[in-house]
Nucleic acid binder design. Structure first.
Length: 627
DNA sequence: ATTAGGG
DNA sequence: CCCTAAT
């Protein structure tokens, strides 16, 4: 193999480096390489779905020692998890036992580190279903939460049964999280003490949209009390005696015989890629093959995207025993039991032209949601509508304790990212916030189209703005608009995602967001090569050869971000193919025969060069060895 | 990060 | 275009 470092192309005086790259011989693909798995943002969302109920009934046979143990355990879990959750603030981890049920849902047994992908075959597309019913309040999301997954939905199937939650078409599944902690714990500690979640799978309909009837757009339900993401009631300690038996699905959701598929959340930027391929692969390999026996099979044949959006719920820790279904108040003094029941996912508003397709709408939602989630989340606590900012306060100091009015404890999910709203505030002029009049956009997500196209004129630019509170992407495609306190955020907590696009056809296919870190599972926009691009490619290849795509890129597409050298290589491949078939078989924008001829010629020439290089190399080796 | 190839 | 093995 010819090892060559990059060449300089200072001027266009290309002394055609006549050393074609020799194709590597054994470049096959083998077993799937196991990369670091990551947690899907939707995992987070779904897992956190629920409303917090702080149980405040005092009276239980619960011993303080038990609660202390719970606290210790929670902290232990947190510390264990800390390494994987970058920048996870201490004690902010939430150990939640949950599972996404129903179509597209995945549940995992933390204990076994197995994961089952479940999809209700009766639904068209589990992922879409999830999306349709998902509403996101951009400023209310979760970050750094640690979840262990326990599923309660499959109780009916018994141990070893397949998780099958009939009704969970929404992420707003009803979770029940019980939090126990000493009253002296501070508010931060409170977050970390979620003991269990019961996912009942009977979510209130949010944006229940039917693709056939159209998705409701620009919904602005002012009447809805959106501020509290979750409502909490406080009680005092709970009975834990039957922890063992509580909330099923603590393990049965995984099939023992199946290979385990246990991605781990690393929180880095390659989620999309990982997630997509992982899920696909997981599905492909029938990780949960036995699912199909119960009618829950993964729909793989269909859209890739939908597959990639399958949720993978994964255990982060050894399962913590669910606290309880039956709430037996504890008489333990100074102990609060917070029960999270149904964590509601905030609202998301999208503006999109009527002539857009449902598919484009779904993509839009996906983009926005994922970008919001990727930006990081944290929990906020509202008491009587007032945000408790001081994490160092004890619950008692924050008046989350016995004798106080604990009826109005709300937990919110907020974006973690934008503490440093360094990015300039930008409100695109094209933005039309009709339908959002009454709301104050918290921030704008502007997904920029890197159309630095020089040779071809594209006009299918899209603009997407969501208004997650202080959401920022790594590449600054999301810009903060307002600094908003958690309280304010809860007051106006809608996201607006206007999608302004001219050609409906383009819009139909084109994802709204084209940030450099695409949404998870998001396929890149398909952008057929224009004639000028093809010409440039052909010319570059003529000069440089077919094995130096990076150089080709630099030579002819240096200022075109959306064409990678892999793209160029692929395009060349298709060009060669196109040139070798009859004109009748060709599709797409016709390429002049002259150009195709050049393609064939260049291909022939450079492949010949490579052959010579190979043979020369071989002879050279033979010579050197013989001499 | 690049390259080569299969999907 | 995507995904991935091999460099």
């Amino acid at each position: 193999m010819v090892v060559r470092k990059r060449l300089d192309y200072g001027s266009r005086g290309h002394q055609v480096p006549a050393m074609p790259r020799v194709p590597s011989s054994a470049r096959g693909k083998r077993s799937a390489r196991r990369k670091k798995d990551e947690m899907s943002p939707f995992d987070l969302l779904a897992t956190v779905a629920g409303t917090l109920l702080v149980d405040h009934e005092n009276s239980s046979n619960n011993a303080p020692s038990i609660n202390a143990a719970a606290l210790t355990y929670a902290r232990k879990r947190k510390s264990v998890k800390a390494e994987q959750c970058d920048d996870a603030p201490p004690l902010k981890s939430i150990a939640v036992e949950s599972c996404i049920a129903g179509s597209g849902g995945v549940c995992a047994s933390p204990r076994q580190s197995n994961i089952c992908l479940a999809e209700n075959s009766s639904t068209r597309n589990g992922t879409d279903t999830v999306l349709e019913s998902l509403t996101v309040k951009p400023d209310m999301l979760v970050r750094d939460s640690v979840f262990s997954c326990t599923k309660s939905c499959n109780r009916a199937h018994g141990v070893g049964g397949i998780p099958e939650c009939e009704s969970s078409r929404s992420l707003e599944a009803t979770n029940q999280v019980q939090v126990q902690q000493p009253m002296d714990g501070d508010t931060t500690a409170l977050y970390s003490l979620v003991s269990s979640v019961d996912l009942d799978g009977r979510p209130p309909a949010l944006v229940s949209s039917d693709s056939s009837s159209g998705v409701p757009l620009c919904i602005h339900d002012k009447d809805r009390n959106t501020s509290p993401l979750c409502h909490a009631e406080a009680r005092h300690a709970a009975d834990r005696d039957d922890d063992e038996n509580s909330s099923g699905c603590t393990h049965p959701c995984t099939m023992g015989n199946n290979k385990s598929y246990m991605p781990q959340y690393t929180g880095d930027s390659r989620i999309r890629k990982m997630f997509a391929s992982k899920i696909r692969k997981a599905a492909r390999n029938k990780m949960c093959g036995e699912m199909s026996n119960k009618g829950s099979k993964l729909n793989l044949g269909g859209k890739k995207i939908s597959t990639t959006r399958q949720r993978v719920q994964r255990a982060m820790f050894k399962r913590q025993k669910p606290v309880r279904r039956h709430f037996t108040p504890s008489s333990a003094k100074g102990i609060l039991t917070v029960r999270i029941k149904s964590f509601t996912i905030p609202e998301l508003f999208i503006e999109i032209p009527e002539n857009a397709t449902v598919g484009s709408l779904k993509r839009t939602v996906m983009d926005v949601v994922t970008s919001i989630i990727e930006s990081g989340l944290r929990v906020g606590v509202l008491l009587q509508g007032k945000s408790i900012q001081d994490d160092n306060k004890t619950l008692r100091q924050a008046r989350i304790c016995h004798g106080e009015n604990l009826e109005n404890i709300d937990f919110t999910l907020e974006c973690e990212a934008g503490q440093s709203s360094s990015h300039g505030v930008r409100i695109p002029e094209e933005m039309d916030f009709h339908g959002a009049d009454a709301m104050k956009p918290l921030a704008m997500v502007k997904c920029e189209e890197p159309f630095s196209e020089t040779k071809a004129g594209y006009n299918n630019q899209q603009r997407v703005q969501a208004s997650p509170n202080r959401v920022q992407s790594e590449h600054g495609s999301v810009h903060s608009l307002f600094e908003t306190t958690a309280h304010e955020a809860s007051a106006s907590s809608q996201a607006i995602v206007p999608v302004a696009s001219p050609s409906s056809e383009a819009l139909a296919i084109v994802p709204v967001c084209k940030s450099k870190r695409p949404a998870i599972g998001q396929r890149r926009i398909r952008r057929p090569f224009s004639l000028p691009e093809v010409e440039a490619l052909v010319e570059a290849v003529e000069q440089l050869g077919t094995g130096r795509w990076r150089d080709v890129k630099m030579l002819a597409f240096d200022n075109t971000d959306h064409r990678t050298y892999v793209d160029l290589k692929d395009k060349w491949k298709t060009l060669v193919h196109t040139a070798s078939i009859s004109p009748q078989q060709r599709r797409g924008e016709p390429v002049p025969q002259g150009l195709l001829d050049r393609v064939l010629a260049a291909q022939a020439y450079w492949s010949q060069q490579q052959q010579q290089v190979l043979s020369g190399k071989a002879s050279g080796q033979a010579c050197s060895s013989s001499c």
